[in-house]
Design a binder for these strands. Structure first.
Lengths: 201, 201
DNA sequence: GCAGAAGCTGACCGATCGGTCGAATACCGT
DNA sequence: ACGGTATTCGACCGATCGGTCAGCTTCTGC
């Protein structure tokens, strides 16, 4: 009797390939990932990959598209809700949940957007991120205000995935998901909510 | 009569190639950069590139090695100097100057370390970053403390290069180098210096 | 039980990859 | 003017890239 995971996996080959591809894209990079590698890791042939997805680009679209959809609606919601502290607080929480639920996808399109310009699904992500950046602070806000957002976004994204690279195994597995969520919300709130006295410091 | 820049550039072909390669590696990615592209961009043939640098990996080493050297001594200095607020303040300033002076190299090895594991020069960078991470906060410090460091490092690095990707041209060129330096130091100090009341919040 | 659709694969394509080699060319001290 | 060294380049190598295609198997509706 096969395990549940195996049964599930073998049922939808395309979903299985999507997952394997996402892992490859986020760790090795899109350009450095070959269809052959992805096929091997998933236990299929390269031809099968191209049967389920018309091209390598289509596979990328399938892998990170949903996460970008989620981010787009997240940003749209925040923009519609205004810039108040209360709205920001709600947004930060949802944003952290989004990050935690889409670690690999977010890492992929944030980290590699620069080198993948021109691919439609990447362009969508760039637009969404720009919209978010512009919505977080007024255009004429001081530079440190813009920097604060950049550091918060880039730092949060980076931290969630850099663990695997820079932390040794001891520290990696110990941490609890909920604990990360709480700590991340705390630090982002510090950065993105106007704290007392900061502007006059 | 050729311009100064051209004259200078043509004198040391290897230095010219190193610079072009660094730009390619940081923007397009190491794996996605081909020796042919680099050669074309520098105005040489692929064979000439391989004459000056024994391999693509050797070219990477030449491109980012010096920056890693600088980071290593920076970290060693900080570790030797202790974790006091004063030492941290000095370190933050030097670290920011290091980042601003080595944007492309830092972006390359921080962003792509994961996918380039096994390459000696990358492994050196990973060790240095780990040492820095462990020196910034006690091993038994709360998770938010570790997160704060990760966000500070990843965020600072990311911000310095993501501009080109996510900011529109309007915002990109206006900013002054000194202004960035000051703002970056301010935000990093916020994150890395124990602020009053934060731990009890 | 049978036809057709869906799934999967190996063989193959032109292009490009990193890298080697030998022949030119440019530059140099003598 | 000459010999040698430094530099550049084109031709070429095996390997791998993304992608096409024809054919084989498996599943499904009737």
């Amino acid at each position: 009797m096969p395990t549940d995971a195996q049964t599930h996996a073998r049922v939808h080959a395309s979903e299985e390939l999507r997952q394997v591809a996402l892992e490859q894209f986020s760790t090795v990079g899109f350009a450095a990932s070959s269809l052959q590698q992805i096929a091997d890791n998933a236990g299929y042939s390269k031809s099968s990959v191209l049967y389920h997805y018309a091209s390598k680009e289509a596979l990328l679209e399938a892998a990170i598209g949903p996460a970008i959809d989620a981010m787009e609606s997240l940003v749209a919601e925040f923009i519609a809700g205004g810039r108040s502290d209360a709205a920001r607080t709600v947004f930060i929480e949802r944003f952290v949940d989004f990050l935690l639920g889409n670690r690999l996808a977010v890492h992929t399109f944030v980290n590699q957007a620069q080198s993948l310009r021109g691919i439609p699904v990447i362009e969508r992500a760039v637009v969404a991120i720009r919209a978010l950046a512009e919505s977080m602070s007024e255009a004429d806000a001081p530079l440190s205000e813009h920097l604060r957002f950049g550091i918060a976004l880039g730092g949060a994204v980076y931290t969630l995935v850099a663990d695997a690279t820079f932390l040794d195994e001891d520290h990696r597995t110990v941490v609890d998901g909920d604990e990360i969520r709480t700590a991340l919300i705390a630090v982002l709130s510090e950065l993105l909510l106007p704290a007392d006295g900061r502007t006059t410091r």
